[in-house]
């Protein structure tokens, strides 16, 4: 009983800061500690703030692309490379400290620039930087579920006339649909929110939502419009979490 109370207390504690930001985005006052009544004006301001829209859209586009490619490649890896050592390589890549992997990627982009003159910093760099982390992540996420598709089921499909690719398309993919959805969402939410990897791989002209939030809010600057921006940025995370827990239930 006490443990239950404790658990719910933790839950309350963890949602409080986010709740405060959401509440303040509807606060008709510029000061966070003065409640000036309900308003939607900060959202109106956000709608008119073109840079914010552009940033949200950039984040969304990158995240969708990263999630699609990473889920597909992660599935291939989980399916074709079942050896433990293969998985360990991805597992280690996933637990790399964030700043290390971001820097490694920035270094890679620098090398490309120095030796070929091709400047990838910007949208392409951000996409690749996110993808580099998202692929091992999708691999690790999908690997446990691939065993759910037994070898003989795939073989049965092959004998009934399916080519290797068709067996993956008609048998493996539908059987893994919930896990694929889950992996897609996690990768999507992760890419949408990430700041460090983006900061290292972008150029000043390409701004995503976290970059914008950092530029204003992290320095303690800006007005409640940023609360509205932060609230909007929460939507993919919440949607991802809800769908994820529904999807993953199918396996239990």
């Amino acid at each position: 009983m006490t443990l239950r109370v404790y658990t719910w207390l933790l839950i309350a504690l963890f949602y409080a800061p986010i709740g405060v930001v959401v509440a303040l985005s509807f606060n008709d006052s510029k000061l966070p500690y003065v409640w000036g009544g309900f308003t939607a004006r900060w959202y109106q301001a956000l709608v008119q703030w073109e840079q914010a829209w552009g940033a949200l859209l950039n984040s969304f586009a990158i995240a969708i692309a990263v999630a699609l490619v990473a889920t597909a490649l992660g599935l291939f890896m989980a399916y074709a490379l079942r050896k433990v050592t293969h998985l360990a390589i991805s597992q280690v890549a996933v637990v790399m400290p964030e700043v290390s992997e971001a820097l490694a990627f920035a270094a890679a982009l620098w090398l490309v620039y120095t030796y070929t003159g091709v400047n990838l910093f910007g949208p392409v760099g951000v996409f690749l930087a996110h993808l580099a982390y998202a692929i091992p992540m999708a691999h690790v996420l999908l690997a446990p579920y691939v065993t759910y598709v037994s070898r003989t089921v795939v073989e049965a499909a092959r004998i009934l006339g399916a080519s290797e690719v068709k067996a993956v398309v008609y048998i493996v993919t539908p059987m893994l649909m919930p896990a694929l959805t889950a992996a897609f969402l996690i990768v999507f939410a992760n890419s949408f929110d990430t700041y460090i990897k983006t900061a290292f791989a972008t150029e000043p002209g390409f701004v995503t939502a976290p970059i914008l939030l950092w530029n204003y809010a992290a320095r303690g600057r800006g007005d409640p419009t940023l609360y509205a921006l932060a609230t909007v940025m929460l939507i993919p995370s919440i949607a991802a979490a809800v769908i994820y827990f529904r999807a993953i239930k199918r396996y239990s």
């Binding site: 499909a157 092959r158 004998i159 006339g161 059987m175």
Partner: peptide
């Protein structure tokens, strides 16, 4: 020749039915 081009059919020890399909779609697969 790959298995899908051999014109053979097989019943597996663990049956290997497709769990995400109903009886009709399982049989209709080939």
């Amino acid at each position: 020749t790959p298995p899908d081009k051999r014109g053979v059919s097989m019943v597996f020890q663990d049956l290997a039915l497709f769990p995400h399909l109903d009886v009709f779609e399982n049989v209709a697969f080939g």
